[in-house]
């Protein structure tokens, strides 16, 4: 189909079986509690490169799986 994500329980499956989930990282440099709260809620690292993220295997085991992906190429590592 398309991009394929490896599921440790089910095997590798096309991206349309999955739901994307971000793993947010609030930078340590932000120290104010409110600012950290806002950053966590709205701001994104949106990195160009290898990112750690979660995908929910909606059509299979219905569990979250943590994977690494290169956001420049959409390659799952």
């Amino acid at each position: 189909m398309a991009l394929r994500i490896p599921c440790p329980h089910c095997g590798t499956r096309a991206i349309d079986e999955w739901v994307y989930g971000e793993i947010p990282i609030v930078p340590d440099a932000i120290t104010d509690a409110d600012a950290r709260d806002v950053d966590r809620a709205y701001f994104h690292n949106n990195a160009e490169g290898v990112v750690r993220e979660a995908w929910f295997h909606l059509y299979g085991c219905r569990r979250w799986v943590t994977v690494e992906r290169d956001s420049r190429t959409d390659t799952f590592l």
Binding site: V19, G21, F56, R62, R63, W64
Partner: peptide, 8 residues
């Protein structure tokens, strides 16, 4: 969505 939310 709620299942995903609670599991996560």
């Amino acid at each position: 969505m709620s299942e995903m939310w609670i599991r996560d």
